[in-house]
Design a protein around this nucleic acid. Structure first.
Ligand SMILES: [Mn+2]
Ligand SMILES: [Mn+2]
Ligand SMILES: [Zn+2]
Ligand SMILES: [Zn+2]
Lengths: 137, 137
DNA sequence: TCCTACACTAGACACTGTCTAAGTCAAGCA
DNA sequence: TGCTTGACTTAGACAGTGTCTAGTGTAGGA
């Protein structure tokens, strides 16, 4: 993640305590956190950090391609530091648990030309829904 | 759509002017409307209909499987009277246009057992994103 | 026709995210 | 090291979408 801080500095970012803390939170093994969850964890290390700054920083990191936004429900967006490998998501309909998954084949290829209606398709999001083992038992 | 009204009556629904109007709106060729768009159209026919009733009625129709909810963006949910044939959605990233599409194969089959982590998967949502012909020109 | 449980309304409220105005400070430079 | 300046941060107001509640109305059966 210090790699990330370097890359950001290289892009002309001012390195502030707030941005460092947000990066640290994402660097943990906590993945798919909401903005407010990131904020809650950031506040532990930097009590005065504001919600707006967390939102801003997350948005900037998304623009830079350092993290990705995931919308598996209609509640809050989630932020995923796993931006280096394309993947999809598997979500438990009961408890909301989210797992990264890797479907076989290229999801783009599942749509035949006759169903593309002249669109230039650039992206596909697949969300698998079901019940996780602990909710099933 | 009078079919729908009959089915609802059969399920013990009271047939009110409000519910009839919501059903009429969905019966038009307007698909993928938001709740507030449904409300706006309903108000033309029944000026005193409230937002809460439209939300309630749409929610009930979803529970009954008569319409489906579609979340292609993080804005409002959209309501799709095309509940009789499974399909996915193709969305223009510029103008937001939405088309029903039918991928080849069963989308569920794209996830190998080794990537299911013990989940019992029951549903898949696929959203294709790109630029539509009119936005491209 | 009357009764009553179900439905409807207006508006308050909650959640997520955005915006603004004022204050703060990182970083380049003397 | 100490300025200067514009990028950054803050608190809180605001906006969009959806939910809930208390009071009122009414569909449909007796
Ligand atoms: Mn992920
Ligand atoms: Mn559809
Ligand atoms: Zn679960
Ligand atoms: Zn378009």
């Amino acid at each position: 993640m210090s790699d990330l801080l370097e890359r950001l500095r290289g892009r002309g970012w001012r390195m502030t305590a707030q941005r460092r803390v947000v990066a640290e939170v994402l660097d943990g093994d906590h993945t798919h956190l909401t903005a407010d969850e990131v904020h809650a964890r950031a506040v532990v290390k930097l009590p005065e950090i504001s919600r707006a700054t967390v939102y801003n920083t997350l948005g900037e990191l998304v623009s830079l391609g350092e993290i990705i936004e995931v919308s598996t429900d209609r509640r809050a967006k989630r932020y995923d530091p796993n931006a280096h490998r394309p993947h999809q998501h598997l979500v438990c309909s009961r408890c909301g648990a989210i797992r990264d998954v890797h479907p076989t084949g290229n999801p783009l290829a599942t749509l035949p030309d006759s169903e593309r209606f002249g669109f230039t398709i650039s992206d596909v999001e697949v969300t698998y829904r079901g019940v996780c083992p602990s909710c099933a038992s």
